[in-house]
Design a protein around this nucleic acid. Structure first.
Lengths: 215, 215
DNA sequence: TTGACAAATGACCAGTTGTGCAGTATATTT
DNA sequence: AAATATACTGCACAACTGGTCATTTGTCAA
């Protein structure tokens, strides 16, 4: 599925080509505004929409908030050592969640991580989310960690889930009550989130792993 | 080979080496502040004075006002840049540590994990260790977690390291004292380990990441 | 006709980043 | 003794940079 790269629009092709050559020639990936300048796009958001499409289609990867954090994903798989790759799974990383949209609705993909199939027990439909805040600190999940979840719409009481409330995706313990749903943090500093029936709530998945980079 | 180059001070050498490896590994030259962070230089001007010296001696080049505009002036034309086709790195997992043997000795290896190069910032000489016990629980490291470390024999005070004491490898904070070495856990239930000079002690590496499988 | 999508605008915010200025302390060189 | 180089601290500032919000325009398919 990943060898068949999705087709690019003309504009996306241009921008991709520019990033590629610029990176190769000057050793530095361009900034968002530099791309905009090159193509006479006056708004950073014009560029962003194109970059988002390129991420979605697997051509580039971005490190959020990092200046010049665009990386060309050169996957010419170079033929040999093929079978090795089959043991790996490519997992989409969810960035910020757009209101209303289903969590995997690609609009906010930040990129992908490739992980060992063993790590995820080869489960299907896995995605990753970058954690914001320290509300799950007692569960060993820190700010900036990458949590992995298996996509599922239901969960058992007490399981750690990724929940989508309005336009936010959070990691919490699932504690359904008769009249409402309680999302319990693992940090005494925070109170449980009470989700009333009128909110937009859904379970996005159950947490199955964590990854943290230190320093 | 490059005898024409003027000699560098120790500090300049360190910084130069850092810029070189960082640029190669992450594809992005560091910012001034990132360099300062790495070497605990609190003022950007401390870094600037070193960079100025490196420019003067012909080791680097800077593009004024350009973010990340540091360029290594290498006499080597940068090879054919064949590069790794795959973006993955295979990391050895250390099992039980035989007394006296270096930690990466073959008899200690338990297996390998393959991880995304980005996760480890493609650092060289990385290994992994399965954590036993809950002594680092407040650092978000639980029993059974896999911790990743970069092999190095020295560390700064307070860094999280993998230490080898007699025939055990443990993850702890490094707190050297004048007369002994203190290995501090991140769990109030445990006391620091005091390593007396007569013990077989060595630093195996600095912890750079954690991975946990849940359920 | 409606709806999804790509592409773009313009204003704005927050955090990053390079630079400038004023100093300090310690070596080494002249 | 004086001059210079090195290696910093601390603070402030302007420019840069990425991200967000609200809207708009055109295309293409159902």
């Amino acid at each position: 599925m990943d060898n068949l790269k999705k087709a690019l629009t003309l504009r996306q092709e241009e921008v991709y080509e520019y990033i590629r050559t610029r990176t190769q020639e000057t050793r530095l990936p361009p900034t968002v505004r530099e791309i905009g300048e090159r193509f006479h796009i006056s708004s950073t958001n014009g560029v962003r929409s194109i970059l988002a499409a390129l991420i979605k289609k697997g051509y580039i990867k971005r490190s959020p908030r990092l200046s010049r954090g665009i990386e060309i994903l050169d996957n010419e798989p170079a033929a040999p050592t093929v079978e090795n790759a089959s043991n790996m799974v490519e997992i989409p990383i969810i960035g910020r969640v757009a209101a209303g949209a289903p969590i995997l609705a690609v609009q906010n993909l930040e990129g992908t991580v490739t992980v060992d199939r063993d790590f995820l027990a080869s489960q299907p439909n896995v995605f990753a989310l970058r954690v914001k805040g320290d509300s799950m600190i007692n569960a060993g999940i820190f700010d900036g960690d990458l949590v992995f979840a298996r996509e599922q719409k239901v969960a058992d009481r007490g399981e750690m889930i990724i929940a989508q409330v309005d336009d936010e995706a959070t990691v919490k313990y699932y504690q359904p009550q008769p009249e409402w749903i309680e999302l319990r943090p693992a940090n005494p500093k925070y109170s449980p989130i009470i989700v009333k029936p009128e909110s937009h709530f859904s379970i996005a998945g159950r947490v199955i792993g964590v990854m943290r980079k230190i320093n």
